[in-house]
Design a protein around this nucleic acid. Structure first.
Lengths: 182, 182
DNA sequence: ACCTGAACACCGTTCAAGT
DNA sequence: ACCTGAACACCGTTCAAGT
């Protein structure tokens, strides 16, 4: 994988996460690099091939970030919250697989496989840490919706509000717990 | 608003919720109706105008559905869960404003205003029923992420798993409650 | 190995013209 | 009031050709 290919993927990822699969053109990226759009096709034969490569790199990067959190002793739900929060702060942008998943009927099989893999791996990592399937799916749904809403408003505080209950006991259960110890 | 305009909006809404803003073309819709693409522009001058009208109608329809749930005595979180679940089952499709919100940088101001209005009204209705802002935002994020994940997999059961905790006490708090009464 | 120029069918959009 | 045909610039894609 050449350096030019990496730069193409960087530009494509940013635009997909801001504006979706159709939010960038080969001619846009080519102009930013200083080549012609036909040259992008040398590195990635089709737009689907480019987006598939971007999604695969994104999934691997997220998996590595989760592994680092776990190695650092962070609890699994907090780990996923931190990683999503990091993706958002990286420019108030959507989760790549959330952006692509929203147009599932439009995706090629290659891109779809990567989007599926993202959600599969995320749920699997939460269940491996002991969460029931319901709760694992709920945690991921909350994070995905939170990054979407925060991205729409361009306000990371919305993400924090939507996900704070994932990492601290809810007001309700704290009330229950207090009454249990009284 | 003519009958033809309604049919155009129906077809556009279905495609946006399956495949996104760029998941349909004026020529596609024109062919389904049996006219030429230039004729669609008679009813909606631009694609942005069409999508804005579709989003406005969607928001009004959701608000009416919520009002009906509340009139029927359904608790507010269950009401929103039912309405999102209904939207999903209506063809395993995304929330329209979630699909559009995922490409926020690509939206015209008209469409953006409608997407903002959807989330504003939803959070406001939850807070009007007594929820704290954090919890209102969390409920909506969970529903939005749940419909996205279920739409990606084409499996409504994922929505149910992700949102079941919104309408019944969690296993954890039930355990706490049991120990409190023991 | 990497890039270009020109062409293809398709897209949203416009507009003069038809009924 | 509603629709058409033809044109515009733009898109992804292809390909013969350059270095």
């Amino acid at each position: 994988v050449t350096d030019t290919a990496q730069v193409i993927m960087d530009l494509a990822e940013r635009r997909i996460r801001e504006a979706g699969y159709n939010g960038f053109t080969f001619r846009d990226i080519a102009a930013e690099i200083g080549v012609t759009s036909a040259s992008i096709h040398y590195h990635f034969p089709t737009k689907d091939a480019l987006v598939t490569a971007v999604a695969r790199r994104y999934n691997d990067r997220i998996a590595a970030a989760i592994a680092r959190e776990i190695d650092g002793g962070i609890e699994i739900k907090a780990a996923w919250r931190n990683v999503f929060r990091g993706a958002l702060t990286d420019g108030a942008r959507m989760c790549l697989c959330g952006s692509l998943g929203a147009i599932v009927e439009e995706l090629s099989v290659g891109v779809r496989e990567e989007v599926d893999r993202f959600f599969d791996c995320a749920v699997a990592s939460l269940m491996a840490a002991g969460l029931a399937q319901d709760e694992a799916v709920q945690v991921l749904a909350t994070l995905e919706g939170a990054i979407l809403m925060a991205s729409v408003r361009g306000d990371a505080a919305i993400f924090d509000q939507a996900t704070v209950a994932l990492v601290r006991p809810s007001e309700k259960s704290r009330r229950v717990r207090r009454s249990a110890t009284n």
